[in-house]
Design a protein around this nucleic acid. Structure first.
Length: 416
RNA sequence: GUGAGUGUAGCUCAACGGUAGAGUAUCGGACUGUGGAUCCGAGCGUUGCGGGUUCAAAUCCCGUCACUCACCCCA
């Protein structure tokens, strides 16, 4: 019989790393509530159609990376590969767009993509992210970006790079893509087979290719930033201006392309020099048509998602505050009942208390106390029980006192 | 999906094709109302799995699986 292991690309999280996760989660809650974001939790799985329509049928994610299955009623469901489509769906479904605008949400949770695992990349991974609906101002783009950068800075993550671009809109993108395809076809023979395929499928992705010949061609291809429509150009300029008000340094990267089809206008990404090949900590942008495309009103949105595993890689392991454990030792099993009752009382008072049910001797129990890094070992054995006292040993100082049981609470208040 | 590297005790790692070992951890004892130190002892493995070569395989060959990293893609 073979051992059952965690599925490929998944992992167990436990001490000491789990403390880092709790720290990060708490930091996210604390930080984003300052911006009046509401937490939202959407289902782990959705109708597959939501992601096909939301993310785009032609994207890598939808084509190759979704965990899709049929349930017993033959519905096609998919483990969420990202959360924006779900949040939009939830907002539409709950009629949030009727009442409150603008809407600000944040989320934390697991996402799933059928990818080949490597450093910073998992099949089940965790993202936090924010979404703001129904605010078309460039300043809100800047605020979202500021919050993303500022939060990572507050975590003392160094070596960050913010890349910024505008990916246009349905007004300016199609004409540009036409120009781009023509230009790319002129250099078709110089491109790798992958990029030749991209000319028709998704020519923007040619900019991503790292092969030198393709990079050389890409350097001579027309840029979207030179073909933006008036509205997109003005919006992008205002975003950049607002970012300068907020003192957020960025790098204009006309080759920055997002992997999901719904993005319009502002696109951004924060990368880190300390990660491996998977160096994106966070990515996002504006999606002015997604809400309508998913059956909602004609309202705009902007957001980002951040990879928590990748952030955790930067945080190292926190030195968890060691618990000041009280260990109750009783020696002979005859006194176990007394020990159990004392433990109950102490826990009721809020102390972390440990006792060893299978200890055969005081010696063994002291050994267990030592192994569990107890601050104090309380001895409640024959002598103490006969005299109505308890002995308290300070494990670090190797000092022991004997006091009436009645005074234990007061003693602990003073000495714990 | 493609490529490379690595799979030996719970953990970290040894073993020219010739009896699978050390450190550490665990458990027991020296030490029967007091932990850490020291000493002694114990258990521990179908060498990831399957096949092949060989008198003989942890070692060489093939396949497979897992992990790691990279390509790809992305958070």
């Amino acid at each position: 019989m073979s051992e059952i292991k965690a599925p490929k690309g998944t992992r167990d999280i436990f001490a000491p790393e789990i403390d880092t996760w709790r720290f990060l989660e708490n930091a996210i809650h604390t930080y984003y509530r300052k911006f009046l974001f509401q937490e939202i939790r959407t289902p782990i799985f959705e109708h597959s159609e939501l992601f096909r329509r939301g993310i785009g049928d032609e994207t890598e994610v939808v084509q190759k990376e979704m965990y899709t299955f049929r349930d017993k009623s033959d519905r096609s469901l998919t483990l969420r590969p990202e959360n924006t489509a779900s949040v939009v769906r939830a907002a539409i479904e709950s009629n949030f767009f009727e009442t409150m605008t603008p809407l600000r949400f944040y989320y934390i949770g697991p996402m799933f993509r059928y990818d080949k695992p490597q450093k910073g990349r998992f099949r089940q991974f965790h993202q936090y992210g924010v979404e703001i609906f129904a605010d078309e101002t460039p300043q809100v783009d800047a605020e979202v970006i500021f919050s993303a950068v500022d939060f990572l800075k507050k975590l003392e993550i160094a070596d960050l790079q913010l890349d910024l671009n505008s990916v246009g809109c349905p007004q300016c993108r199609p004409p540009y893509l036409h120009v781009l395809r023509q230009a790319a076809r002129a250099h078709e023979t110089e491109l790798c087979s992958d990029c030749r395929r991209k000319i028709d499928a998704n020519p923007l992705r040619i900019f991503d290719c790292k092969k030198p010949p393709c990079e050389a061609v890409a350097g001579r291809l027309p840029l979207l930033s030179d073909h933006l429509c008036g509205e997109c150009r003005n919006h992008f300029a205002a975003v950049r201006e607002a970012l300068s008000w907020m003192n957020v340094p960025f790098r204009l990267n006309p080759r920055l392309v997002r992997g999901l089809d719904y993005y319009t206008k502002t696109a951004f990404e924060i990368t880190s020099g300390q990660l491996g090949a998977q160096n994106a900590l966070l990515g996002g942008g504006r999606y002015d048509n997604l809400i309508r495309d998913l059956g909602g009103p004609d309202m705009v949105g902007i957001g980002f998602a951040a990879g928590m595993e990748r952030i955790i890689l930067h945080l190292g392991h926190l030195q968890a505050q060691p618990l000041r454990v009280l260990f109750v030792a009783y020696g002979d099993p005859r006194w176990l009942a007394h020990a159990v009752q004392l433990a109950q009382v102490l826990r009721e008072e809020g102390f972390p208390v440990l006792l060893d049910f299978q200890g055969k001797s005081l010696k063994k129990q002291f050994k267990k106390a030592d192994r569990s890094a107890a601050a104090f070992t309380l001895v409640l054995a024959e002598d103490e029980i006969r005299s109505g006292t308890v002995s308290i040993k300070d494990m670090a100082r190797q000092e022991q006192v004997n006091i009436p049981l009645k005074e234990l609470n007061a003693w602990l208040k003073k000495n714990y």
